[in-house]
Each structure stands twice: as C-alpha cells, then as structure tokens.
Design a binder for these strands. Structure first.
Length: 443
RNA sequence: UGGGGAGUCGUCCAGUGGUAGGACACAUGACUCUGGAUCAUGGAACCGGGGUUCGAAUCCCUGCUCCCCAGCCA
C-alpha cells in the first residue's frame, strides 16, 4: 500500500533513461498492508489517499514494471454496480485475469501493449492461474478517416457530426446507417489482412468492397438528384405509356418493373450542356441520346429565364420508333440518361457524403495544429427536391438501391418516413466522365 | 541518448535459401441500353552498406528511418 501522491509517484518512477526510486512505503508489513487495503475497500479514505502497488522493480528499463499501481480509490458511481465499490483495478492488473477467467487462449490487442506484455505475464505467473497468450497487432488506420475513439468522441460532443451513427463516422453504427453491408465489411477485413506494422489502408478499398457487393444485390432505380425539365415537343400532351425496366442487369432473377413515360420529364442537370465539351456524350443542342428503357430523344431548343439566363427547360423531339430504348435501323447513340416522369415522380431528400477529413492521415498533426483543422467542410451535402421514381414510395428504412448512374444509396434509418424520403449515399459509382473532364481541365 | 516494435509496388498483404506474387489504386484498350459492371493489357517494390552461399527479400554484421512507452487511462 502506498500513500504517495500521484505527483510523487510520477517523480519516483524516474524517466526513460533514469531508473526510478523505491517508495518510502514500499516495505510496510503484510499486516499493515492488509489493514489499509481493507479500509481502502471499505471506503474510509478519500480519492487518491492510497493505492495498491505491485512490488516488482523500480529500476526496470520497462516503465510498466516499476511497481505498477493495481488499485486506486475512486468514489464514483459505476454504471452497473452503482456505489458498491470505491476501488477500481488498473487495466494491466485486470486484463490478464479477465482473459484467464474467460479461458481465452490468445488475447489479441494492439501494438502499444507490447510493453505491457511482461507485466501481463508477471501478474498471471504470480497468481498461478491459467495463462493466456497476449499477441499484439497493428491497429487499422483508414485514409481520410479518424479511428481514435477519443477523437471520434470529440466530434460527437462538439456536434460536428450527427452522433456516433452519423453516416460519415467509421463506427459500425455509422457504416450501417451509411449503407455498408456486413458482407462488404467482412470482405474488406479479409483483404487488408493482419500484420504488425503501422499502416494506413486506402479507404478506396473499403469502397470497392461495398460496390462489389451492392453491384450484385442492389435494385436499380431512377433518381434525378438535380432536376432539369425536359419537354418532348412531339409527344402528345395527355399520353402516358409504360416501359419495362430491368431491376438488376447482374441478376435476371430480380425481374423487371414498369416505368411511366410522359411528355414532361426530369433529367439530371449535369446531363445537359448547351456548349458541350469534347467527348461529351450526353444531351446538348442537336444531339441524340437514349432515355434508359424508353426512347431516343434529340434536343431541339433551350428555354431560358429571361432575366437570369438560367436554363429552365430543354425541348426535345422523340423518335416513336425507338420505344424500349433501341433502334431498328441500328443507329447508335453514345449517351444513355436516366429520367423520371415529372407528373409521376415523387420527391426525396438525398444526402451526399464525402470524407470527413481532407488529410490522408488526420491524426498525424504537426505542432500547433489539431485534427479538427483538417475537417472537410464539404463532407455532407443535403439535396432537397430530388425527383425519384414512384416505386421508391414503398422503400423502407435501411433498404439499399443503386440510383442509376449515381451510386448506391440507403434509406436513412434515422430520418426516413413515408412522408419524408431520406436517402444516404453510401458510395458513388466509378465516374469515368469526371476523370475525363478533369483531365481536359488540366490540359 | 533506456526499453519495446516495424521497414517488400502509390496503398495493403503474401513470399522466410531457388523465376518477388495478389488485391486496391493508376494507365491503355475492348465491350456495353448505367461514361456502371465486366474483360484484356501495362507501368510499378525488397531501407542502405558489407558478408556467408552456386544462389539472399529470406541467414550474419553494420548503419539508417519510422512507431510506441515516463496515467492513480484503456
């Protein structure tokens, strides 16, 4: 039993290069120690008055062996045992015993506990109980992601994220809400392996595993995130048709569904350019594209707001001979767009996520900086007024879809209701056009 | 500068005395009713210096770099 203050214990411990000094209380008699420990457990002393320490070796080059503390007084309410106890064991003292009691044969932990293994072994040996083997491995680090629980807690407490299950959080609840499948996480775990060296796994691999899984299983649906009105001039005003859409080209057994086509549609704003760059396969004045599963259309006119010059609608003509999305004359169109019928689409809120940090290793920060200095201001973008196909009205929280040409989305488990459809983007599709465009911009 | 660990393509993981391999990423091409998916091809690495050996990523010596430890945290 030691009655040195915490400060004194630190002082007596020595440093990395200087051996420690034994506490003046180190040689108390067994009787006195027993008496003191009994009273300590009985709650006679205030916090910090006494600690129980193991007498090992104050000169050990391993600081953990310099008479480590086993129990300290903490008059705190425990979430399970309440005020029943006022002394609590230190991790090193408790760790081996709980492993032993549980009959764990191999106790896996992270690298920073390598220095603690001699102590783990020492306690077990002194106790003479079943001796599990502790083995240390490197922790998982993900690029552009923070994995430290303490720092993640800070994000939650500061309100930077929407709780532990914020879809940007690398927590299980966060990944789940984001739309990650258990299969994809297991696949990822297998692919990254386990080793003893410090490393940062590319978050792109995690994303790849999700795409890989969802590509095979997710239902394809039409969702226009940033709507642009398209009017088919030569299509009858009141006509409504049904076209058949494949639910998943990777899995025929998932069947088809009907889609409603009409004169006024929405397409993606990005899918139209009045002044198209090179290699732009989408809609532009005079160009012909396919509306997926429906018709070929050609842009004939652009309608702009007189004051702002903003494009408010695009006028097209359609070829009635291309129903279903193919042409008997064999002519090809390079672009295929997704769309929804304006009168039939339903509204949704879509949340686009990006990495929480702009730095590959946000927990490695230089002097004077904090990890919060590298937060990505654009990690969340909320889109209102998105137009999605009517079948999504039957979606349930947690359902996953591929929004055609966009990515994989998950109906949010926190905010999704029949009256308010909220979808989280789990991961985008690979965007080859974005690369081409970026390359063109660089040149 | 005490002690404990780790160094292999851009990234992660294999290879432990016999042709350095896979995945992701990247690049190029093919195909395509998703610029998706798929397929093909390609570039790309043994921390440095010695030594042992017919032969070294692997064994030996030596140097270098990086990570962890001075909580009554875990």
């Amino acid at each position: 039993m030691d009655s040195l203050s915490a400060d004194k214990i630190r002082e007596y411990r020595g440093t990395l290069t200087k051996p420690g000094v034994e506490s003046p209380h180190r040689n108390r008699s067994v009787e006195e120690n027993l008496d003191l420990f009994g009273r300590m457990r009985a709650g006679e002393f205030p916090d910090g008055a006494y600690v129980l320490r193991a007498r090992i070796d104050m000169a050990s080059p391993n600081l953990n062996m310099r008479d480590p503390v086993m129990y300290r007084i903490l008059h705190a309410s425990h979430h399970r045992t309440g005020d029943q106890w006022c002394i609590y064991p230190m991790y090193d003292w408790a760790h081996g015993q709980s492993d032993s009691i549980e009959g764990v044969t191999h106790s896996i932990c992270t690298l920073e506990f390598e220095d603690h293994r001699p102590l783990y072994d020492w306690f077990l040996e002194q106790l003479g109980i079943f001796h599990p083997q502790q083995i240390e491995f490197a922790r998982l680090n993900l690029s552009y992601t923070m994995m430290s629980k303490r720092r993640l807690l800070a994000l939650v407490q500061k309100g930077i994220v929407d709780g532990w299950d914020d879809p940007r959080m690398p927590t299980i609840s966060g990944l789940r809400r984001r739309g990650y499948t258990p299969e994809s996480i297991r696949d990822f775990s297998e692919r990254i392996g386990v080793a003893k060296r410090d490393s940062i796994v590319d978050v792109a691999l995690l994303e790849h595993c999700l795409r890989d899984d969802l590509n095979k299983s997710a239902r394809r649906v039409m969702a226009v995130l940033r709507p642009l009105k398209v009017i088919i001039d030569n299509y009858p005003d009141d006509k409504i048709e049904e076209v058949e859409a494949v639910n998943n080209p990777e899995d025929e057994s998932m069947g088809t569904r009907p889609l409603t086509f009409s004169k006024v549609l929405y397409i993606e704003k990005d899918d139209f350019r009045e002044d198209p760059p090179k290699k732009f396969f989408r809609l532009s004045p005079g160009s012909e594209v396919r509306l997926k599963h429906a018709y070929y259309i050609t842009c004939v006119d652009v309608e702009k707001d007189e004051k702002t010059g903003e494009i408010v609608a695009v006028h097209c003509s359609y070829d009635p001979a291309t129903k279903g999305g193919w042409s008997a004359d064999g002519r090809k169109v390079k672009g295929t767009l997704h769309w929804v019928s304006a009168a039939h689409a339903i509204e949704a809120e879509v949340r686009l996520y990006d990495y929480l940090f702009t730095k590959e290793a946000p927990d490695v920060v230089e002097e004077g900086k904090e990890f919060t200095d590298f937060l990505n201001p654009n990690s969340l973008e909320i889109l209102h007024g998105c137009k999605v196909e009517p079948s999504l009205a039957e979606a349930k929280a947690g359902d996953r879809f591929q929004f055609l040409r966009h990515g994989y989305f998950c109906a949010d488990t926190k905010y999704f209701t029949p009256d308010r459809l909220v979808f989280n983007r789990a991961v985008s599709l690979r965007d080859t056009w974005a690369k081409i465009e970026k390359k063109q911009a660089d040149e």
